[in-house]
Design a protein around this nucleic acid. Structure first.
Length: 538
DNA sequence: CCTGTAATAT
DNA sequence: AATATTACAG
């Protein structure tokens, strides 16, 4: 609607202060100080003139961002914002006025066309529902009378106790009380209108809004620190935002933890239910299109020896629990290896990564099984909509491609790789331990096939700084390397099953070489491998 | 001075 | 509903 950037605008480039300098009016109690925001210069001018006639002190701008900045700096210089309905918000598709209400405690008058008001009544309704601050509506064309009435609403708003809403009269139910209140406060207004609290609190910091972006930073910080080491102060430092206080983080963290707890209880519940329906036969669900889901009956006690593991606390998902089918894989998008994941009844356990343009010039697909903590977080934060264990189409989690030579610190304890060329998974020469692993792992000699399966885990993930987070020692399921403790069967079998799946995905003819060479066809690991393959062959 | 938790305020 | 603030214990 409104012109976007107007070269021929009558208005100045930046916020155009058309009244005496704002500072002189900071304490103004007579004239109302208006901030008018509208993309359309003509409209802006029109309203500006009107407002002048009403003896308001007027500031105009036609960019939402300007308005926001202006308010952030000089919130105390304004009493009301007049804002065009169609002004977009900054981030998503919200309206500017919603941002304003959210961030500032200031009355907002929304101006909209007749069309907006009548046709999209739903929108208007939602607007009116916003009870975060005063929000009124004026329908264009706006008359001088409308404007001159603004201050009444606003002054009323100031003296009203913040709690009560001031919804429009829809004539229904118990609005009587509110109305009464209203008239009372109008009287009050005259008594004490000059020491209105709100605009006189100049340095009141705007409340911190946890946008998606900010939340993502928060989660990143938590992941970096490790979930149990993430404390407000450190998170704050990692996020590195000037406005952010420790209290902000503490508050958010508090909420975040509650959220996590709830989620994990939910998934526990799901697991319990899944266990009740154990021995039911192999479900052959739909493999329509890209989605393949199967639940396989596997009753091996995968966690049996885990309790003995010294660092069991680091791996809550691997703690002993009733055996559940652990081969419910789902690759949501077989056509696009850049996105995807693997999940079983423990949640998301792995993600599919793709590395092209590494310095071998070869393409690699990796299935990286995640540390439980990461997978748990991934589940909760990146797949918020997956109410079931199924990925939703919209839930794909795009993983950044790690640069060559860089080891991902969140990948553990297993990485299953499929090289599409004839190269090792990675060039590990820069990381001696990994290099060693490549040469000594189960199948590491066999470059170029699925043979490049290996397992490992980070021995000292806690050792803190991101740079020191390197996979410190690898082991295989049959061989101990570097005195590392061997993890129990569960992850291994899972990884092998995943390798099978992956090999299918990659159309590798070499796939079948792996298990027979290593385990013999009778081994339970071989079963897993076949399971993985079967899953994806449908 | 910091953390975690709960309660309460805005 | 989301965020901020506060109180209190550790």
């Amino acid at each position: 609607m409104a012109a976007n950037s107007n070269p021929n605008s009558l208005i100045h480039e930046n916020a155009n202060i058309t009244s005496p300098p704002l500072l002189d009016h900071q304490q103004s109690t007579t004239a109302l100080r208006l901030l008018i925001v509208d993309h359309d210069p003509a409209n802006l001018k029109l309203i500006q003139d009107l407002a002048f006639q009403c003896n308001y002190i007027v500031t105009t701008c036609y960019e939402g961002s300007q308005a926001l900045n202006l308010l952030r700096e000089k919130r105390e210089c304004f009493d009301v914002v007049l804002c065009d309905f169609h002004m977009p918000g900054i981030i998503d598709d919200t309206h500017l006025f919603e941002h304003l209400l959210q961030e500032f405690n200031i009355p907002v008058v929304v101006m909209c066309s007749m069309d907006d008001a009548s046709s999209s009544s739903a929108v208007m309704e939602s607007m009116m529902k916003k009870e975060k601050g005063a929000c009124y509506n004026l329908v264009k064309p706006i008359r001088e009378e409308d404007l001159s009435n603004i201050w009444q609403n606003v002054m009323m708003e100031k003296t009203l106790t913040r709690k009560e809403d001031y919804c429009d009269d829809d004539g229904s139910e118990g609005t009587v009380n509110k109305k009464k209140r209203r008239s009372v406060s109008i009287e009050e207004r005259d008594d004490n209108h000059d020491h209105v609290q709100q605009p006189n609190t100049p340095n009141k910091k705007p409340r911190f809004v946890w946008t998606n972006e900010r939340h993502r930073m928060f989660v990143d910080a938590v992941l970096q620190l490790g979930i149990d080491k993430a404390v407000p102060k450190k998170i704050m430092e990692l996020m590195d935002m000037p406005q952010l206080t420790r209290e902000n983080v503490a508050s958010h963290l508090q909420k975040f933890r509650i959220h996590m707890r709830k989620k994990s209880e939910e998934s526990q519940q799901i697991i319990r239910e899944a266990n009740n329906n154990t021995s039911s036969s192999l479900k052959t669900t739909n493999h329509n299109n890209a989605q393949i889901t199967q639940t396989l009956p596997l009753a091996r006690p995968y966690y049996s020896d885990l309790a003995a593991a010294a660092n069991v606390a680091d791996y809550p998902f691997y703690q002993p629990q009733p055996a559940i089918p652990d081969a419910t894989f789902e690759f949501p998008n077989n056509n696009n290896p850049l996105f995807g994941g693997v999940m079983n009844n423990n949640g998301i356990i792995g993600r599919l990564d793709h590395q092209s343009n590494n310095n071998h010039g070869r393409s690699i697909i990796m299935l990286n099984l995640l540390q439980p903590q990461q997978s748990s977080l991934m589940m909760q934060n990146n797949y918020p909509h997956s109410s079931s264990n199924l990925f939703q189409q919209s839930d794909y989690y795009p993983m950044p491609t790690p640069p060559p030579h860089q080891t991902c610190d969140d990948e553990a304890p297993f990485q299953v790789g499929m090289s599409c060329g004839r190269s090792p998974l990675f060039d590990y020469s820069s990381t001696p331990l990994l290099h060693h692993q490549m040469n000594n792992s189960l199948l590491g000699q066999d470059s170029g096939s699925i043979a490049q399966f290996h397992g490992g885990y980070t021995t000292a993930p806690a050792s803190a700084s991101p740079s020191s987070l390197s996979p410190a020692g690898f082991f295989s399921s049959t061989t101990h390397h570097h005195n590392q403790q061997q993890l129990p069967n569960y992850p291994t079998s899972l990884a092998i099953a995943a390798a099978g799946a992956l090999s299918y995905l990659s159309n590798s003819s070499a796939a079948t070489q792996v298990p027979t060479a290593l385990y013999g066809s009778s081994s339970s690991l071989f079963d897993d491998y076949q399971l993985g393959q079967a899953l994806f062959q449908g």
